[in-house]
Design a protein around this nucleic acid. Structure first.
Lengths: 235, 235
DNA sequence: GAGTGGTCTAGACCACCAA
DNA sequence: TGGTGGTCTAGACCACTCG
């Protein structure tokens, strides 16, 4: 047989769930019952059930049994970085400015730092087909002793910039998408009208303890931005 | 011990990966080597490795070994439905109109149907704190014989509407977010200015074969919409 | 106390890969 | 050919749940 036994079993049970024969939060037969039904060892049944647990179709409760999950219909997976949100081909980023500044109230709040701490500002302009498309600004708390290397500031995405400060596995990123009219500064930079709306994609980078280690916004003229995602089976 | 052996092993290996001791695409010691090192059975090692495979830290190649994955830094999970994207509390949707229409060229293309087929149109107005916030329009191919039940048209989210036509597990949804100036129709409906931009959240529902079974847009005044997501460890 | 899932073992056979 | 991961078995002990 090409298809392993445990996969046949998990396919079978998955079908029963998707076709409604096992409804949400109802118990499945026990592992021992299933191993008799399918004439396989208990470990094989466990392997099959484990597949479905990983696929979020089932959850198990020790001492009770396995239950079908009510599926979430509102989960989407988006893949994007600073350059990906811009429409068009031949996208590139150009470093505009790097500076070390005293934080204002907003920065003190967002990065949760003391007012006497300094903050590194990295500004990029993003181009699509040689045309200006977006403006990106990032703030990172400045730690004396950790030099700002050229490698960091030339990168455009946050994980790359922060990579040599902490492990990429240890960070968490929160992202929000909204829309607004540009400030005078933004409209001047992007060479657009003050009543031309801009996409604002805001990112906050948190370390393992949930403390902010980066904050930034991408401003993009409304016609230059498109964001796409796909549904996934949820938690 | 409270912590099972396999979890200690997977924690150990995960730490080695996140701290860079095992770099991307490098092979791990074999299962047999690990079972000697940790003094456990091969099945326990496999359990530990399986955890990390499910967490996307590792992948395995039959006949070769286990390898650390290069992590993706650009994956985000978004949770939202038609009501969730609107800012504010006390959100509700009100059915505005249901109709069966002849499809125009756009609909024929988007739903991939023949021009003589009919299409069900469902229009909703969405309110936040009793104030009009968004306009939602959905198109579903009309199948004679399948009645449009009241249950369907009163729901606001696509999965709910389509639920009794097909299993929710069998559908896939593609979503795109963009921004534009409203048409006259949209600006009139939302009672906004024609030069006030709107968020457009477009959804396409596909069945298992990838054929469209639903298409819709949500139009939301730019100040009423906020979309948030969190990073996830990618594929 | 009987049944449940959670963990762990020791062994077996297979297909695949590389030298 | 020897090592790798992939599958599967039969049995064991545990903690948990529920009547």
């Amino acid at each position: 047989m090409a298809i392993p036994v445990y996969q046949k079993i998990s396919d079978d049970i998955r079908t029963q769930i998707t076709h409604g024969f096992i409804s949400a939060n109802n118990a499945l037969p026990s592992e021992n019952t299933l191993s008799s039904q399918y004439n396989v060892s208990r470990m094989t049944v466990r392997k099959a059930l484990n597949v479905l647990v990983n696929e979020k179709y089932l959850y198990s409760v020790p001492g009770k049994g396995y239950f079908a999950k009510k599926i979430a219909t509102d989960k989407y997976l988006f893949t994007f970085d600073e350059l990906e949100v811009i429409k068009g081909k031949n996208k590139e980023s150009r470093l505009m400015e790097v500076d070390i500044i005293k934080p204002n109230a907003e920065l003190i709040y967002q990065l949760n730092i003391s007012p006497d701490k300094r903050v590194v500002v990295i500004k990029h302009l993003l181009y699509s087909n040689k045309k200006l498309a977006a403006y990106d600004i990032k703030y990172i708390p400045y730690f004396t002793g950790i030099p700002i290397v050229e490698k960091e500031i030339n990168y455009i995405t946050f994980p790359e910039i922060i990579a040599n400060r902490t492990s990429m596995f240890d960070i968490h990123r929160k992202i929000s998408i909204r829309m607004d009219m540009p400030s005078n500064e933004i409209s001047t930079l992007l060479k657009i009208n003050t009543h031309d709306p801009v996409f604002i994609i805001e990112q906050k980078i948190l370390d393992q303890e949930g403390s902010p280690i980066g904050w930034g916004q991408l401003y993009c003229h409304y016609q230059n931005c498109l964001i796409e995602g796909d549904s996934v089976i949820g938690e």
